[in-house]
Write a protein that binds this DNA or RNA. Structure first.
Length: 597
RNA sequence: GGGGGCGUAGCUCAGCUGGUUAGAGCGCCUGCCUGUCACGUAGGAGGUCGAGGGUUCGAGCCCCUUCGUCCCCGCCA
């Protein structure tokens, strides 16, 4: 076999005159009869190889005629300069070409089902079925190179900061909280199941108890929930935990990881990354993961609506609800259909409707002489309208939109509207990457069956003493923090509870009694009784991070072998049926699926 | 569990109001071609219109069922 002496994409004019050996794939072939051009591609790039009848042996020329796309070649040749009129400035290697004098076909290829050389849209399941072809495309390769660099940057940084890379088990015990578990039957213990980790949460806390002080892991996590463009059943976290720390320490380390990661693409992060509380995020942006690339902040007019004639606003304002609005600057470019679509959008997300007021573009600039187009202005007295306009800072050409509903819906829908409007109007982002921390989340929220933890039950509440937990639980915040990038939750974490009495109390409040707490988390509760230090940490979603840094539309583009939306793998046809013998060995019987034997 | 989009040649797609033999670009095959780089050129092959059922004189097109895929809601402590 001819082995390469240099990667294809690295050959330059400085190599002219040298004899080189190359390995690679046939990217394209152009057969001119007596002269054949082959674009040879390997991971490093592409170089043009020429087989010239007048200079190559007949054997080499004949062999080159049989070569097709994606054949794998080994060849030897001389690096020669291209004549000035044949230099290709579009190619890194465009100043030179390889005059081939020895050629070996290392493998042939069937005609590719889709082109590797062209970057056309291909059906998703076809791409995944022939993933090895899809991944040969440069656009894909570049993403995995960046992913590698990010992981390297994170590892180097964390190593420098004294973190130990420790692996935690994949086979775990199922706990019913949180997402649905992937289960693995135990042969040795029939009828019992392992669960794949949703995250290494409890183990990393145990490692703190073990005195490791600083832990990290590039950790695979598994959640059996429905998929989205940014959600896969298995995904990867950069998982971090530290002892003897508070929020500032964890956030500083996280920012360090992100800073090192982004420096690989030449992006400098703000130092420090700005922070806002959960309450501020909700009131300004209607979301606990605000997208700061756009203005369009929420304006509350609940107080102005208590006495207005407009019954929809009046009723909501006087029954504990809220009226939230947005001022769409120069929104007059929105068509009536756009507005109708926004109303429909609001309904889809749970609001009863959406009201709007357009201040006509050609209105007089005097606020009292504004001319409106709106189904609702007739319900407002002139002075009420004036106050409303002042509250929004509205000027001619602006469009105001309103959601009136119970607070949770009003925040949520208005928050979603902001992003929808930004999309519809094609608003220009203030910057490509806008980070923020969101801190001080509520510790608890009202679930369908009592109180549940907003973050997870091991999060430290913001309290002075355990007795505070006897008061209004919904008023208590947690020492949790999320890192948000462009409205996407990149990661989250918290300072943890490190005392068993507090931990037990929290679990009790969540309607988990001592017995079941001990059954599920007994090992953690026990560890807390044996000198577990104060600790906290965070996990970053690596796939989402890479997705955003590469400008990818889907997390699938940055995972080598992703699943389809129905959680299948077209490449391997996983998941598949198993034999009756396997089932028997595991003590399982299948009721619904047909089992292939 | 629910809403929406898509499924026609190897790939990407067009196909009007239901009407003759289902088209295009790229790819593929054969011939020609010594300077192309998305080579050119002449010719050619290639179709279960996702599948099943129904309506109709007649279905790629309408209806029902179903499968696959994508986006979204719910879900994702």
């Amino acid at each position: 076999m001819i082995k390469r002496s240099i990667p294809c994409g690295l050959i330059r004019a400085s190599h002219i005159g040298q004899t080189v050996s190359l390995n690679g794939w046939v990217h394209r072939r152009r057969d001119h009869g007596a002269v054949i051009f082959i674009d040879l591609r390997d991971r490093s790039g592409i170089v043009q190889v020429t087989i010239d009848a007048s200079r190559s042996s007949e054997a080499v020329h004949n062999l080159a005629e049989t070569v097709r796309s994606e054949f794998v070649l080994g060849l030897k040749g001389t690096v020669i300069a291209r004549s000035s009129d044949t230099v290709n400035p579009k190619m890194d290697t465009g100043e030179i070409e390889i005059e081939c004098h020895e050629l070996e076909i290392l493998n042939t290829s069937k005609t590719p089902v889709f082109s590797v050389a062209d970057d056309e849209e291909v059906d998703e399941s076809l791409k995944l079925k022939y993933r090895y072809l899809d991944l040969r495309k440069k656009s894909h390769l570049d993403k995995f190179i960046l992913r590698h660099k990010i992981v390297q940057a994170a590892r180097n940084y964390l190593d420098k900061e004294g973190f130990l890379d420790v692996e935690t088990p994949i086979l775990n015990k199922s706990t019913p909280e949180g997402a649905r578990d992937y289960l693995v039957p135990s042969r040795v213990n029939p009828g019992h199941f392992f669960a794949l980790p949703q995250s290494p949460q409890l183990f990393k806390q145990i490692l703190m108890s073990a005195g490791f002080e600083r832990y990290y892991q590039i950790a695979k996590c598994f959640r059996d929930e429905d998929l989205r463009a940014d959600r896969q059943p298995e995904f990867t976290q950069i998982d971090i935990e530290m002892s003897f720390v508070d929020e500032d320490d964890v956030m500083a380390i996280t920012e360090g990881v992100l800073r090192e990661s982004f420096s690989t693409i030449g992006v400098e992060l703000p130092n420090p990354i700005p922070r806002m509380t959960w309450a501020e995020a909700m009131s300004r942006f209607g979301s606990d993961k605000p997208d700061l690339r756009y203005d369009l902040e929420l304006v509350d007019i609940s107080d102005l609506c208590k006495n207005v004639e407009f019954k929809v606003f009046n009723d909501v304002a006087n029954s504990g609800g809220m009226i939230k609005g947005l001022n769409i600057k120069n929104g007059f470019t929105l068509s009536r259909k756009n507005l109708d679509d926004l109303v429909e959008f609001s309904r889809k997300h749970g609001a009863k409707g959406m009201a709007w007021i357009t201040i006509k573009e050609d209105s007089p600039v005097n606020i009292d002489q504004y001319e409106y187009s709106s189904p609702i202005v007739k319900f407002f007295k002139p002075e009420e309208l004036r106050t409303l306009m002042e509250r929004f800072g509205a000027v001619p050409g602006d469009v105001l939109v309103f959601i009136a509903d119970k607070p949770s819906v009003a925040y949520d829908v208005t928050g979603r509207l902001r992003l929808e409007i930004a999309k519809v109007l094609g608003l220009k982002p203030k910057a490509p990457y806008m980070f923020t921390w969101v801190t001080d989340f509520p510790m608890f929220e009202k679930g369908q069956e009592g109180i549940t933890a907003l973050h997870h039950p091991f999060t430290m509440p913001h309290i002075q003493s355990v007795d505070d937990l006897d008061g209004d639980l919904l008023a208590i915040n947690s020492r949790a923090y999320d890192i948000i990038l462009n409205g996407v939750e990149l990661g989250g974490g918290s300072i943890r509870i490190h005392r068993s009495d507090l931990q037990m109390k929290i679990l009790n409040l969540l309607s988990i009694d001592a017995e079941s707490a001990n059954e599920k988390f007994g090992f953690l509760l026990q560890a807390l009784e044996f000198g577990t230090p104060p600790h906290g940490g965070l996990a970053l979603g690596l796939d989402r991070l890479v997705m955003m840094m590469t400008g990818s539309e889907s997390i699938r583009d940055v995972i080598a072998f992703p699943k389809t939306q129905s959680a299948t793998c077209p490449l391997t046809n996983a998941p598949g049926a198993v034999s009756l013998a396997q089932l028997k060995e595991l003590g399982l019987r299948i009721k619904i699926a047909v089992v292939e034997d």
